[in-house]
Design a protein around this nucleic acid. Sequence first.
RNA 1: UGGGCUGUCGCCAAGCGGUAAGGCACUAGGUUUUGAUCCUAGCAUGCGGAGGUUCGAAUCCUCCCAGCCCAGCCA
Length: 556
Amino acid sequence: MTETETKRSANFIRHIVAEDLSNNKNNGKVATRFPPEPNGYLHIGHAKSICLNFGIAEEYQGTCNLRFDDTNPSKEEQEYIDAIKEDVRWLGFDWGAKEYYASNYFDKFYDLAVALIKQGKAYVCELNADQVREYRGTLTEAGKNSPYRDRSIEENLRLFSTMKNGEQEEGSAVLRAKIDMASPNMNMRDPTIYRIRKISHHQTGDKWCIYPMYDFAHCISDALEGITHSLCTLEFADHRPLYDWYLDQLDVGHPQQIEFSRLSLQHTIVSKRKLKLLVDKGYVDGWSDPRMPTLSGLRRRGFTPASIREFCKRIGVTKVDNSIEMAMLESCIRDDLGDNAFRVMGVLKPIKLVIENFDNDKTETLNAPNHPQNEAMGTRPLPFTREIYIDQDDFREEANRKYKRLVLGGEVRLRYGYVIKCHEAKKDENGNIVELRCTYDPETLGKKPEGRKVRGVIHWVSATESIPAEVRLYGCLFSDTTPETAANFEDSISENSLTILKDCRLESSLVNAKLAQGYQFEREGYFCLDSKYSSPEKKVFNLTVALKDTWSKSAS
RNA sequence: UGGGCUGUCGCCAAGCGGUAAGGCACUAGGUUUUGAUCCUAGCAUGCGGAGGUUCGAAUCCUCCCAGCCCAGCCA
């Protein structure tokens, strides 16, 4: 690791960990965990947490547990568990031999709740949900004690076991911690420990009809696993006193909770609830829609694990509210694909071009490098024929000298091929250009023409030796910079975030295109095969990210 | 006159009392058979504001201002 890389990955949490290590706190061990609730797919915000937790474990020879925080079966599904595991693995992290589940500790949680009751620090409250809210008070007014707060330990024990045994109706009672109804911290006003939910759990089946709340389950799970540093997002800072309170009452160990700010990416949302709504309402093609900020969406879009890890490294970890520009993410994937994508040619909006002085039945095989800056990536044959396609945007009947493409009467180079000159633009009855008539200069292959300068270089494919393909172009799902803060984020969903081009032509080498391989369609952008819709019979490519385009930017 | 957290360049982010790193973006040049890449240069007399301490303050103190989070039997 170079000095700059070390510096870049340093952050306040790593400083704390390093400090603890130098003080031999936790016997010199570091243990973190990544604790997703399986109620949706992982997104780019989770990647930040994954890179932080697994990254710290790697850096300090510690461990990082993958733990499913599955204490609310009404929102969770096995499908999400499977998807989460796939995404974490894809991102490049290894959670070792076993995966953890909070639900594995349900017996232990129950015993500890009983222990709390026996200490006189928990009670069964039969106020209904509305009453609990009323009794809680407000941000500026203290709450008042529940009338059930001073039940005897024996009665609490008996009632709690009736809850456990299914003898209580859902909503009729909860177990609460006896802390302080006047605390300025709402989380300390006798928080709920257990609630009744008569539904089966994806891991434990019908064994339980009471389920622990996050605050109770999470700190204990951390403690039982010997977690040293429990990293979570800022909104849990107010929960830390409760995290500490539970662990102070129970002799199970005491990890340190540290909060950092969650990622916010401009023009998108990173809220599982809202992402699920996009899926459920059909705004997108499932969780892996290439426009989604989910890891599966980014994967299908053509992002590499390395590019996302690099992104997480670049954005850093702090406690400051942030709003990352999309340009940051795009820069990361361009850097990766710039090095690793194979260069190919694809014509997205084809217009036929006939080279009149080239034999009709001849195919000349040209040779093109797969990466002009990296010889090791080899070369490929490129068939050149009398009829080719170029992009509609690469021809104008007339243009000023700043236009570096083909114009009527002008010359341009065909990438990796010859210089051609255009003589005529054939039009249909509506005045649309349907065919370009050109001649080529046979002396210009790999050589500059003598005595003149060509305007520029354009990409092309053989009309007869190319393959048809569908290409999908993507824009932001939201036009708003911060759709997350919009009153109704559905209103800011962009109308035209997907453009499907059905009549594209790609160079023939792409018949062997592989999934998960990045391709640069020269002068256009980076593309990848779509894992859902592409087939050997019908290739479908997704735009990962366009090449930087300073020309169209300055023109507009 | 509830509590918690945060304010360093357009967006991120180092900095931890010795005189403002770096990245993204942007601007200007150079190379180029991708208007890409690459290279070179530029980009905060300034660190939310006002006072104070100090030889010296983004760093310490005081007051003020702004933003974010919290009243689920969600996580």
